[in-house]
Amino acid sequence: MVGADTAWIIVATALVLFMTLPGLALFYGGLVRARNVLSVFMQCFGIACLMSVLWLVAGYSIAFGDGGLYWGGLGKAFLSGVDADTVSGTIPEVLFFAFQMTFAIITPALIVGAYVERIGFGFVMLFSALWMLICYAPVAHWIWGGGLLAGGEGSWVAEGVNDFAGGIVVHQTAGLAALVVAFFLGARQNKTTPPHSPGMVMIGAAMLWVGWFGFNGGSQLAADGTAAMALTVTHISAATASLTWALWERIKYGKASLVGMVTGTIAGLASITPASGSVGPVEALAIGAIAGVLCQEACKLVKDIMNIDDTLDVFAVHGVGGMFGIVMLAIFGHAAWASQLTGLAVVGVWTLVITTVIVFVAKAVFPIRVSEEDETNGLDIAAHGERAYDLTS
Rank of each mutant, 00 (worst) to 15 (best):
L31V: 02
D304S: 13
V210I: 14
I134R: 01
L110N: 05
V349T: 07
N216F: 09
L38M: 14
A178D: 10
R387C: 02
V87D: 13
I290C: 12
A298S: 13
T192N: 09
N162V: 13
G67L: 10
A206D: 12
Q340M: 11
T244N: 09
A338N: 11
F184N: 04
A336S: 12
F41K: 00
V349R: 04
L133Y: 03
G348I: 05
P108G: 15
A238F: 00
M200Y: 05
P194F: 00
A338D: 13
V40H: 02
L179W: 08
A284P: 03
L269W: 12
R188Q: 02
N216E: 09
F332P: 13
V53Q: 09
Q172Y: 10
G160S: 14
Q43Y: 04
L344I: 07
A63E: 10
I119H: 03
V53C: 11
V11Y: 03
V40K: 03
P108I: 13
P367K: 14
V2W: 03
I203H: 04
V359L: 07
V201S: 04
W144T: 06
I62T: 11
E283K: 00
G211V: 08
T90K: 08
Q340C: 02
T392H: 02
A246H: 02
G120Q: 06
F103E: 13
I106H: 03
V365F: 07
I47T: 14
T232I: 09
G280N: 11
P274D: 02
A104L: 05
F127P: 01
L185D: 15
V139L: 08
A158E: 15
D224Q: 04
F64R: 07
G89T: 08
L243M: 12
G167L: 06
V349W: 05
F324L: 07
G378N: 03
G322T: 02
L258P: 07
F41L: 14
E93S: 07
S371F: 03
V327E: 02
L208G: 01
A14R: 00
S52F: 12
E249M: 01
A286H: 10
V347F: 08
A140P: 02
Y389F: 07
I305S: 05
Q340S: 11
S155V: 06
A239C: 07
F360P: 10
T273N: 04
G333M: 00
A330D: 15
D390N: 15
A177L: 10
D163M: 00
I272Y: 09
I287K: 07
I9E: 01
I331T: 11
E373A: 10
A187I: 01
V82L: 14
L79K: 00
V112W: 01
V233T: 11
L133F: 01
G68D: 09
F18H: 02
L130F: 00
A12N: 12
V169H: 12
Q220R: 04
L179P: 08
L133P: 04
D83G: 13
G280R: 06
R250D: 09
F121S: 06
A286E: 13
G73Q: 10
A289L: 05
G72H: 06
V370P: 10
V210Y: 08
A267K: 12
I236S: 09
L344K: 00
F213A: 06
G264A: 00
S39N: 15
G348M: 09
